[in-house]
Amino acid sequence: MSRIAPLTKPYPEAFAAAMTALMRGAEPLVLFTTLARHERAWSKFSAGSLLDRNSPLSLRQREIVIDRTTAKCGCEYEWGVHVAGFAARAGLDDAQIAATVRSDARDMVWSADEQALVGTVDALLDRKKLTDAEWARLRDHFDEAQSLEIIQLVAFYHGVALICGALDLPLETNAARFPPATEEGQLP
């Protein structure tokens, strides 16, 4: 059980309406119902979302950044939600899904632009900055708006991972689980 009890039905009207639109008939995530216990926490969290249709990134690019960020942060909760909800639509195969958890940017499952995504996530989470060379590599593949979106995704989902870990959220029953470790696997 989460350290803060999630909302239970009947949900407040505004939250129920938001969940109807967002979840498309599925039950709200524990993360959402837990944050919604406090209107300010929920409104600030939901206002920071980058999952709208106006993203300068493709669904695949966005999900690689989110999956890598949450995996590198050890957040099986959010990684599993995104893999279950978006990996197939994003065209991520089993090897690529596993690589978000168990590999690095040099893995040959990634194209050159995807290697730049994974490398950017790793640099930001490891050192909290990009070197000039890392920035140049990112910009070789992504324009300014896309680059900012990538950085914001890493920051937002790093925060999501901290929230999930601090609240000790139980894993969603229909979410994916981290792949088993291999001899060379180093994450999470």
Rank of each mutant, 00 (worst) to 15 (best):
M1H: 09
I4H: 01
I4A: 01
I4S: 00
P6F: 01
P6I: 02
L7F: 02
K9N: 08
Y11K: 05
A14F: 07
F15D: 00
A16P: 02
A17H: 03
A18Y: 09
M19A: 04
M19V: 04
T20P: 03
L22W: 01
L22P: 00
M23N: 12
M23K: 10
M23S: 06
A36P: 00
H38P: 00
W42N: 02
S46N: 13
S46G: 06
A47W: 07
S49Y: 09
L50G: 08
L50T: 07
L51A: 14
L51T: 14
D52A: 11
R53E: 12
R53Y: 05
R53C: 03
N54A: 11
L57K: 02
L59F: 01
Q61I: 00
E63A: 00
E63F: 04
I64V: 08
V65I: 07
I66F: 05
D67V: 12
R68L: 13
R68E: 12
T70W: 04
T70V: 11
T70Y: 06
K72H: 15
C73K: 12
G74W: 08
G74N: 13
C75F: 05
Y77Q: 08
E78N: 11
W79L: 09
V81T: 08
V83S: 03
A87E: 02
R89L: 11
G91V: 08
D93T: 04
D94R: 12
I97S: 03
I97F: 12
A99C: 14
A99E: 05
A99Q: 07
V101W: 14
V101S: 10
V101G: 07
S103E: 13
A105H: 14
V109R: 09
V109I: 12
A112R: 14
D113K: 09
E114T: 02
E114D: 06
A116L: 03
T120I: 03
T120D: 05
V121G: 01
D122R: 13
A123P: 02
L124C: 10
K128C: 11
K129D: 12
T131V: 09
T131E: 11
A136P: 04
A136K: 09
A136Q: 11
L138H: 06
R139Y: 01
R139S: 05
D140W: 03
D140L: 05
A145Q: 03
E149N: 06
I150W: 00
Q152G: 13
V154F: 03
A155R: 09
F156T: 04
A161N: 07
A161S: 14
L162Y: 10
I163A: 09
C164M: 04
G165Y: 06
A166E: 06
A166W: 06
L167F: 06
E172H: 12
N174P: 05
A175E: 06
A175C: 11
F178R: 07
P180T: 15
A181P: 15
T182R: 14
E183P: 15
E183M: 15
E184N: 14
L187H: 13
